[in-house]
């Protein structure tokens, strides 16, 4: 019998990190239950957190962190040239994430505040997701990156198929798990317009959604703001809540 959808060879993968807390990469090392199964299918050729070697080309490059300096731009171009498939790992890489909050202020002010009189040594750019500079094939969202989504993307790539890109909101996963809505517990939650794929992990443990996976396609942001203010936030608080992870994609959401 021919094995027509099962993978035939190991894929060469590499990990890189840009401006980030490296939490996503550590999260990946936390895949203890799965890591041996994963290693059956891959050959890791570059992973700073776990090894020192370097390679010339990769089937899949997983990249964590935002682009925020001119050096980052050069490096990401170099990685893109050597990677058949490039996957953004975690919010910083996929949507700009927390880093992009700095974009809401003039870049020179930010540089001054952070580096003081040494600022001339540290050129800086507005924080950007990888897709602002290079073509990104797939994204694994979340802060830190969502393990269920990582496994989903990983398995798909190992099988040579396109991973599913979730575009429904977190509410769907909450309802499938029959969670009590956090709005009914007096909280405000960004689940209604945040991209699912995390299995509603935060609401399932009583923590409201902070929007770390980015907004769904075509989000009705004004309606979401109304929801937040109707449930007790001031307009300013509501805007801040939405911008926490989504400053890059939606910098002028509320102007």
């Amino acid at each position: 019998m021919t094995t027509q959808t099962a993978p035939k060879t190991k894929i060469k993968i590499a990990y890189f990190d840009f401006t980030s807390c490296e939490g996503c990469q550590l999260n990946k090392l936390n895949l203890e239950n799965h890591i041996l199964d994963l290693l059956e299918h891959v050959e890791i050729v570059e992973f700073r957190e776990a090894m020192d070697d370097k390679a010339d080309s990769y089937d899949v490059a997983f990249i964590e962190g935002s682009i925020s300096t001119p050096t980052c731009v050069e490096r990401i171009h170099d990685i893109r040239r050597r990677a058949k498939i490039l996957v953004a790992l975690g919010s910083c890489a996929s949507i700009g994430g927390i880093n992009a909050m700095k974009n809401l202020q003039p870049i020179e002010d930010v540089r001054e505040i952070v580096y003081g009189e040494d600022k001339y040594l540290f050129p800086t750019l507005p924080a950007m997701p990888l897709s602002a500079i290079v073509k990104v094939d797939y994204e694994i969202h979340g802060c830190p990156m969502s393990i269920p989504e990582f496994l989903q993307v990983f398995k798909a790539l190992a099988m040579g198929k396109a991973p599913i890109k979730p575009d429904s909101p977190v509410c769907v996963e909450c309802k499938l798990r029959e969670n009590e809505c956090l709005f009914d517990r007096g909280m405000v939650c960004l689940g209604p317009i945040t991209r699912s794929g995390c299995d509603a992990i935060c609401p399932s443990f009583g923590q409201f959604c902070t929007g770390c996976r980015g907004l769904v396609p075509n989000p009705n942001k004004n309606a979401m703001l109304d929801i937040l203010t109707d449930h007790g936030l001031s307009l300013q608080e509501a805007e801040k809540r939405l911008l926490l992870f989504n400053s890059y994609q939606h910098p002028d959401t509320f102007k």
Binding site: E40, K155, P169, C171, K175, P192, I193, N222, A223, M224
Partner: peptide, 29 residues
């Protein structure tokens, strides 16, 4: 204008029955 399209109304409705079908693979592949 007021709706965010979260799908909650469908998912809690006792007479809704639409579904999607997906293939899931074990990590063994």
């Amino acid at each position: 204008k007021r709706c965010v399209g979260c799908g909650t109304c469908n998912l809690v409705c006792p007479t809704c029955y639409c579904f999607n079908v997906v293939d899931n693979v074990d990590l063994s592949l």
